[in-house]
Amino acid sequence: MAVIEIQNLTYTYPATSHPALREVSLTVEAGEFVAIIGPNGAGKSTLCYTLAGFIPHFFKGELQGEVRVAGQDIRRVRLEDWVLKVGLVFQNPFNQISGAKFTVYEEIAFGLENIGVPREEMKRRVEEVMALTGIEDLADRSPYALSGGQQQRVALASILVMQPEVLVLDEPTSQLDPIGTREVFQVIRRLAHQGVTIIMAEHKVEWIAEYADRVIALAEGRVIGTGTPADVLTDPRLPDYGIGISRYTAVARRAAGEGLWPAERRLPVTLDEAEAGFRAVEEAHAHLH
């Protein structure tokens, strides 16, 4: 079942002359984990804001085409209802913090309070997501007196606690250490298995390769590629568009240039694929000797 259906979406922010998104069409199924890649300014955040209803309801501007999420036209929804269906984790976690609460625990409970969730359920859900995002020890800290990485986990928890059907994440691991990044990707992967639809804008292609079901590449507001991570992340045009590729892909491409990658094999996007390919090269050479 398609949860997100976008047809010919063109969007222009107020007081700008160039569209931030141009003729974007895409479909996302329930429980899919879709990563959006693209250089800065490609329209990744704009697409996130649109799915979350901030466009057109908050940013205004001119929206053409069709955007349907969970069967509803994004133009017709009320933002206050929509935030319960679609959760958005901002790129800068600082923007996510309400400013109304003194502790991390209360901050995470804030959204549930606003919709009148019973106290016992609220406590259970808050404690569950704090465990899931690894921030139990921050419960009594001020949301403002945290490192960037800690704030990023709190921002994620404050959205997860709302149990949205669709989770939109704009570079949610930019301030996390590598293991913290892996933990967040694992949490997101698990949510997708539970049926939550995930859209994540992200630069870290080596993680996308490992965890996402599908990748959409944007450049200058247009979709320039869509498919499995293996297909999109080995597209030779990506560097020309200013999109990063994994070191595995890059080194194998150079190796292929000197005949050191198996001729019929697709370039690798993960560690496992790179290992398998280079082992095959070494074995072939060992037979020659």
């Binding site: 250490d177 590598p178 293991i179 913290g180 080596e206 994994s246 070191r247 595995y248 080194v251 560690l271 790179a274 290992e275 280079f278």
Partner: peptide, 11 residues
């Protein structure tokens, strides 16, 4: 300290 070796180092 939650750091992994670089991609090519791991490879």
């Amino acid at each position: 300290t939650y750091v992994e070796p670089p991609q090519l180092t791991r490879l």
